[in-house]
Design a protein around this nucleic acid. Sequence first.
DNA 1: AATTTATTTTAGGTTAGTCTAAAAATTAAT
DNA 2: ATTAATTTTTAGACTAACCTAAAATAAATT
Lengths: 218, 218
Amino acid sequence: MLITPAEENYLKAIFKIAEQEDKPVQTNAIAHEMNTAAASVTDMLKRLAEKQLITYEKYRGVQLSPAGNQIATVLIRKHRLWETFLVDKLGFPWDQVHELAEQLEHIQSDTLTSRLDQFLGFPSFDPHGDPIPDAQGRWNRRAQIALSDMQAGQKGKLTAVADDAALFLQYLDQLGLALHAEITVLERFPFDQSMKVLIGEKATVLSEKVCQNLYCAV
Amino acid sequence: MLITPAEENYLKAIFKIAEQEDKPVQTNAIAHEMNTAAASVTDMLKRLAEKQLITYEKYRGVQLSPAGNQIATVLIRKHRLWETFLVDKLGFPWDQVHELAEQLEHIQSDTLTSRLDQFLGFPSFDPHGDPIPDAQGRWNRRAQIALSDMQAGQKGKLTAVADDAALFLQYLDQLGLALHAEITVLERFPFDQSMKVLIGEKATVLSEKVCQNLYCAV
DNA sequence: AATTTATTTTAGGTTAGTCTAAAAATTAAT
DNA sequence: ATTAATTTTTAGACTAACCTAAAATAAATT
């Protein structure tokens, strides 16, 4: 059965949403994630259900089937391997690889994926700190918590960023925040959930939104 | 103006056919090259003419415009850079890279192309000995002649193969014929234009078709 | 419980890229 | 120079992936 790039993208979006909350994924959530009209999503859900890649009950939301889950996992694996390639081998900055990987992830060749994996030294995490599932679809989970959940006085090392948007990553660059940077929580401001943190030598205030998107090993 | 992968493929096919004979490219030739119905070609030619990528006169065949030529050149450049990457960096055999490069060539990013070029050391020829146009679209032409045009007694080094089909390349592997191999023409058989040649230590008879697809520097 | 609001689906339409079969134009052959 | 053969185009149809607007269903509120 051949899966189109558009179908793969829907499966990936469903996977991503399902990861955050453990309940059937809603049509509107998918439409928002993919920047499409809800009607287009309904169309596609029917096709995906037809192909047994999701379980779909009208008005009730969807869930990935085992087959759908596997396709999404392979797609994420390819995406993150390509991002690693672009940064480690071609020297791209981390804020410029997401869009490119969105194209490269659709290249169909298991051999290519596994050779690329080997060429990169079987990496476990991508340039944004996200885990790369292995050839069997197994995930590396790492002990890490959101910076927004850390207490004043706690120290941590930046292990992952939860948002790959170029603007966000460029902002982190400006702050001197790269993966593995040391962060110390100096003070929490309950008013707006912002925090004062120490990055290297420099103290900065980070908004709640930024803190929610930074993960640390403590 | 955005060019779709399908449009790119048509431009590449036109380029390839025009390379062989210097006259307007016929609809049927394109249809044959692309394994599509002639009617589909006519449809696409109208679209390409609309976009000013070809000059098209009904029933008269087509020619690439400067813009169309540039797109085809970049596409071939990307195709051959990816093939080089797959062989040199990922260790693919030369008979397995064509189909993959057909996918990879459509990745849209000038930055990626130039970084890949640099990563590979600005190669001038791909794994099949075909020239790779540089970032300005300039071609490396090399002094070489078809084995089928060589005379008995002549010696040469294999510089390029004119057919990327896996079956042909595997046959060459069997014969011990890799790029840069030394070939000596022992005898020509006028009856069917086959030749007896020396490859390394081994004498073999090659059909006319094979000889036409092998190029040598003498 | 009835009504309002939000969500989802259906209906109907568009574009790109393909197809087959029939018609038109060109080229070759008698 | 007609006729026959070949090539090309048109006509009409299909699928995937999208859209807007309207209808249907579910959830929330009074």
